[in-house]
């Protein structure tokens, strides 16, 4: 019996290289990019819809990659808002990966974009180990999932620096105290930012865009 040592290259090195290539490709085109992660039904799509409208009003051209297991519902919603969009069906995969994003970028008019939103499959856990190459990442949850959502997924939230708590208008109807989510997150991630929002009406959304580094008036761009 003998042992052969290896250099310690990351098992996902190929994914990391692809993610870095996506990052360079987007930067060469001057595109700012955001990954949107979150639970099923938390409001990721509504949030991106709102952002498309808001940023297009600022004169920014928005592209989207809409990932779901099946169908093109989210993609159609983004197109209806005026985004240049690509639909990606991951089928039995529970997450997007950098390779799928690379292909999606091939199908987007990158020269005609300023901003790209990549909406991942609704899943809080699996996408965490698969970097896509975007500038920023945010996690969307909603009060309807319960006020123990953060404490039930501590590892995710301890490593997520921007969290949106959506549907805060429904908090009293579902008996949830959003401040409990805020307090749990602050304990896990003292440097992270958390925003109480209502993507349907735009509440909190300017703050989300500002935290992502987008201007709220076109004079700042």
């Amino acid at each position: 019996m003998h042992e052969v040592r290896f250099s310690g290259e990351d098992i996902l090195a190929r994914q990391l290289e692809l993610a870095e290539a996506n990052y360079r490709r987007l930067h060469e085109k001057g595109i700012r990019s955001v990954s949107v992660l979150g639970a099923i039904g938390s409001g990721k799509t509504t949030l991106v819809e709102w952002a498309i409208t808001r940023l297009e009003r600022e004169g920014l051209r928005v592209g989207t990659i809409a990932a779901d297991s099946a169908g093109d519902d989210d993609h159609q919603r983004f197109v209806a808002r005026g985004a240049r969009s690509v639909n990606v069906n991951t089928q039995d995969d529970c997450h997007l990966d950098a390779h799928a994003v690379d292909h999606a970028l091939d199908a987007l008019p990158l020269d005609a974009l300023d901003v790209l939103f990549v909406e991942n499959v609704g899943n809080l856990i699996c996408p965490a180990d698969f970097p896509l190459g975007t500038d920023r990442e945010m996690v969307v949850i909603s009060v309807t999932e319960g006020d123990d959502m953060v404490r039930k997924h501590p590892k995710i939230f301890a490593q997520t620096d921007l969290v949106v708590v959506n549907k805060v208008d429904l908090a009293s109807a579902v008996g949830v105290d959003p401040q409990r989510l805020v307090a749990d997150y602050a304990a896990l991630n003292p440097h992270g930012k958390i925003v109480l929002a209502q993507a349907k009406t735009g509440r909190g959304m300017d703050e989300v865009l500002a935290l992502l580094g987008f201007p709220c008036t076109n004079t700042q761009w």
Partner: peptide, 25 residues
Amino acid sequence: ILSCPRCGGSVTATAGRELCVERVA
């Protein structure tokens, strides 16, 4: 918790994100 235990500043992880094959028998 990704926060400095001494001063409360923000930190980067220098270990803990590995996922690599070290050796085979």
